[in-house]
Design a protein around this nucleic acid. Structure first.
Lengths: 118, 118
DNA sequence: TTAGTGTGCTACATAAAGTGTAGCAATCGC
DNA sequence: GCGATTGCTACACTTTATGTAGCACACTAA
């Protein structure tokens, strides 16, 4: 299956339905996509800054993600580098709580693991 | 790089930081992970029901995702099949708004596209 | 008891996606 | 002009996902 930017209303990565939520999950479910959005929430970053912020992800894939996220209207290129669009920022609002949740999750898993070791 | 369930507090998929949010993004950023959680929010589903609900995703990868999500404490196996744990349900609460957002996003993209065609 | 169903898988060959290093052309400040 | 930085692209390689087939087990009705 050829890679393609997921577009709601059209079949996606093997999907025949093209349900918006599935198109979104396909887009966000690609490596670093969520990470890129997360990093850009603090303000514009250059190509290489994103790369550095995302554990030196490969430029190949960063380039691809940028194109996809741009085509999807979540990211745009500005003077200071790449930045979230209004829509991208909207999405980040939904994404933000994941930060706190992930910490609780981490704590919970650590506790669970500690208990198992007894 | 060998596949491994992302665990917060430990390096993840090439990451050296192990920040919880990045571990979470790694876990959710694998194919169908978000879709599986989404589908399970309506109640328990059997292995094959999940497969069907997720556009007949390959059993190979469904099995892997289930193991990962189980190890991460988001999914558990019950009498009626696989289901979200309390934590998984908590996560879904955060995920739920993405449904409405994705529809707006789809509409926006469609409008944008219609405009470009003039 | 046997034939049919559905279940949760696993095997395996193939295709797609991601990695990591190298490096190039363009732009910037000097 | 010179070096530094930028946004990339090429390419060989590894990892991840797909899709089909099928197996072992449990249940059910004949």
């Amino acid at each position: 299956m050829a890679e393609r930017t997921p577009v709601p209303g059209q079949p996606v990565r093997g999907s025949k339905t093209g349900k918006p939520i599935m198109a979104l999950f396909d887009l966000l479910g690609r490596s670093w996509a969520l990470g890129i959005i997360w990093q850009l929430s603090d303000g514009p970053l250059t190509f290489r800054q994103i790369q550095t912020a995302c554990e030196n992800m490969s430029p190949t894939i960063l380039n691809r993600r940028i194109k996809e996220l741009t085509a999807s209207g979540l990211v745009a290129r500005g003077d200071q580098g790449y930045q979230l669009t209004t829509q991208g920022a909207d999405l980040f609002v939904l994404l933000k709580p994941f930060g706190a949740w992930s910490k609780d999750w981490a704590d919970g898993l650590a506790a669970h693991r500690a208990q198992e070791e007894r």
